[in-house]
């Protein structure tokens, strides 16, 4: 089940309209504009809620995305790189978000650092195509994953705080 905080943040992210993938030429450009618009709104929402937890940007074609996410645990801010590609069958297929630095440090990850999502994610995504986009994948996928896995990895000593110089 999706927790209440995630549900609330999801409802505040604008939904997308255009069903287009990276090979759909002009329609893909339209989809990309919608993706960016939704992401901008989501980041603004997060800033307003004092929970600014990620940044993302893409290559010019919008097929490769990268950025950073942050998780605060015991007053320390942990930072991780994010990367993912847009699958050819997007948006029917959700992007596989990866945190490459954590590859091999948790069982909740596929090879290459791709995060394992809960059983709820795929059917929820499928029911909401094409309305859900990258912002929704972050809210439904990476956000909850960080909340569960990062504290666990910290407690186990698998990851340690890196002070910014």
């Amino acid at each position: 089940m999706v927790d209440e905080a995630t549900k609330k943040s999801l409802t505040c992210i604008p939904v997308l309209k255009t069903k287009a993938g990276p090979r759909d030429k002009d329609l893909w450009v339209q989809r990309l504009k919608e993706e960016y618009q939704a992401l901008i709104q989501y980041v603004q929402n997060n800033k307003g809620a004092d929970n600014d937890w990620f940044r993302l940007e893409s290559n010019k074609e919008g097929t490769r995305w990268f950025g950073k996410c942050w998780y605060i645990h015991n007053l320390l801010k942990y930072e991780f790189d994010i990367e993912f590609d847009i699958p050819v069958t997007y948006p029917a297929t959700a992007p596989e978000i990866a945190l490459p630095e954590l590859d091999g440090k948790t069982a909740k990850m596929y090879r290459g650092g791709k995060i394992c999502l809960t059983d709820h994610f795929k059917p929820l995504w499928a029911r909401n195509v094409p309305k859900f986009g990258i912002a929704h994948a972050m809210a439904l996928g990476l956000g909850p994953w960080l909340a569960v896995e990062i504290p666990d990895m910290i407690e186990k000593g698998v990851i340690s705080y890196k002070e910014k110089t």
């Binding site: 604008p14 450009v29 339209q30 990309l32 504009k33 919608e34 960016y36 618009q37 901008i40 800033k47």
Partner: peptide
Amino acid sequence: VDTSGVSLDDLMAQMKAM
């Protein structure tokens, strides 16, 4: 989302500036 009147380049720049 309402993307009328805004270009993709503008949106990319807006996201980068956040």
